[in-house]
């Protein structure tokens, strides 16, 4: 091995490792690939937060694109995404269903009264069992479900202002054509 290669080779290896590690650090280790993409939304039947309303089921939403947003009053990041959910609700282009995850109904109500309610329906999952069926591990999470009841996208963590345009609008366009 030529002497200068002896010096340069370790540096090259180090540089290559540095690149690999920098790329590795960009990703969020809390974001896991979901096993639910392109699978049917698991069935559930949960009471509606508003009393006297029929139970909330995925079947009742068949035929339209809808969002399932997992939230809770105790969840700090839910407050961060809330303005963006309200923006999406104002567009009135997609049905947004809330899943009040492991939350006291009274707390959920107070939280929504203070911030505004973007949801057309709110399912109460006090025990968090529907959350388990949907593989929820970090609230907030948002599922995009198409007219056939298939989960097309799952967002872990607060949604941002580009969420609707990037992940919901393409499905809506597909539905109308």
């Amino acid at each position: 091995m030529p002497a200068n290669l002896r010096v340069i080779l370790p540096l090259l290896v180090l540089a290559a490792l540095a690149v690999v590690f920098v790329i590795g650090l960009q990703g969020d280790p809390r974001k896991l690939p979901s096993v639910f993409i392109d699978k049917p939304a698991p069935a559930f039947s949960l009471p509606e937060l508003a009393e006297g309303q029929p139970v909330v089921t995925p079947e009742s939403l068949r035929g339209k694109v809808w969002l399932l947003n997992v939230f809770a009053s105790w969840c700090g990041a839910c407050g961060t995404e809330h303005p963006h959910l309200l923006e999406v609700a104002q567009l009135k282009r997609v049905e947004m269903v809330g899943l009040a995850y492991k939350d006291e109904p009274a707390d959920t109500r107070a939280w929504l009264e203070a911030r505004g309610n973007p949801y057309s329906r709110i399912a109460v999952d006090r025990a968090g069992l529907v959350g388990i069926d949907y593989g929820v591990y970090g609230v907030p999470e948002t599922f995009v479900i198409d007219a056939q009841g298939i989960i097309r996208y799952k967002h872990v963590g607060p949604v941002d202002q580009d969420f609707f345009r990037q992940h919901v609008e393409p499905l809506l366009a597909k539905g109308t054509s």
């Binding site: 896991l32 690939p33 979901s34 096993v35 388990i132 069926d133 949907y134 593989g135 591990y137």
Partner: peptide, 8 residues
Amino acid sequence: MVDRYGEF
């Protein structure tokens, strides 16, 4: 568990 959370 794997059906819900993946092999992870």
